[in-house]
Design a protein around this nucleic acid. Structure first.
Lengths: 157, 157
DNA sequence: TTGTGACAAAAAAGTGCTTTTTTTGTAGCA
DNA sequence: TGCTACAAAAAAAGCACTTTTTTGTCACAA
């Protein structure tokens, strides 16, 4: 399928074969701005780059995870907007998708691809926060554990 | 607020003060199974453990991230179900919440707290997959880059 | 003080229906 | 082959409405 060593990019049919997407879909996505081929022949035929292939594969996965095409479209916009990388925009990224949310991991940060919001909630931090604000609370825990250890043989339950 | 060193747990009012939740909420949550106090006095009064405090703080954060209480309830069930830890069930966890989804990170794995599904999509893997299946594809990329480098001064765009 | 029950208001979730989006097919043309 | 255009079927998104859930306040009992 991928034949010539002299071609300038992948044709629609080649991309369809490689990615498992239908040629028809590729047209539609091109027209509606999901993934557009990064170059075009003089006759107006699509030529997809290797990077395009990866992007298309990514989109396919997202769809299979239940993300709607509309959200995919928005997510890709956000990706390009918030992660302005040049040559390999999608690689080195970890992506998590559940029906409604697309999350992108990059350099230890989790980002919502739709909103651009970044956050991770560390439960251990909540613990520390309580202890900082209420030192007695932790004291209490220690004492409880001591009591528990001491009374293990006495208690039946 | 946290006074005695001999008490067996935190009272409702103490928990309310520490967590910032309302006493009413704690009652309701107790009755409807969001977070139940891990022990009870003979008179039926709630006694929350330190771990309960952390769980409650976690829930509060989730609510503030826009997760509904119903989803929180389901998520907590899933958490306990899929991560059966004994003493400190919530610590060492990283949690990510966007409106509809609660994700839990534990030992390098991301899990949807609602469904228990685990996945991370590594974009770099998609890349490798393509190259594995279609070695020519990568060949093509290399050639393209060579061509690109060679023609840089010729091309205006 | 804490818990329970009752009433009420606000928030969230479910439902059925319509509209829009997406996919696919077909045909003409370069 | 591949693009365009028209068309039809399937899937998703919106919307208005109802129902459920959640929270607050109050009165009363333990």
């Amino acid at each position: 399928m991928v034949s010539s060593r002299l071609q300038k990019g992948f044709s629609r049919q080649q991309v369809a074969n490689i990615t498992g997407l239908s040629a028809r879909q590729l047209n539609y996505w091109r027209r509606t701005g999901v993934i557009e081929p990064s170059s075009t022949t003089q006759g107006g035929h699509a030529r997809y780059s290797f990077t395009d292939l990866i992007a298309l594969k990514t989109v396919k996965q997202l769809l299979e995870q239940g993300v709607s095409l509309q959200k995919v479209r928005k997510s890709i916009l956000a990706l390009l907007q918030y992660l302005p990388m040049q040559q390999q925009p999608f690689s080195e990224l970890k992506v998590i998708a559940t029906g409604d949310v697309v999350l992108v991991f990059h350099q230890g940060v989790a980002m919502d691809a739709l909103t651009g919001q970044e956050w991770i909630m560390e439960v251990a931090e909540l613990e520390k926060e309580i202890v900082r604000q209420y030192p007695d609370a932790f004291q209490l825990v220690v004492e409880q554990e001591e009591l528990f250890t001491a009374n293990t043989d006495k208690k039946a339950s």
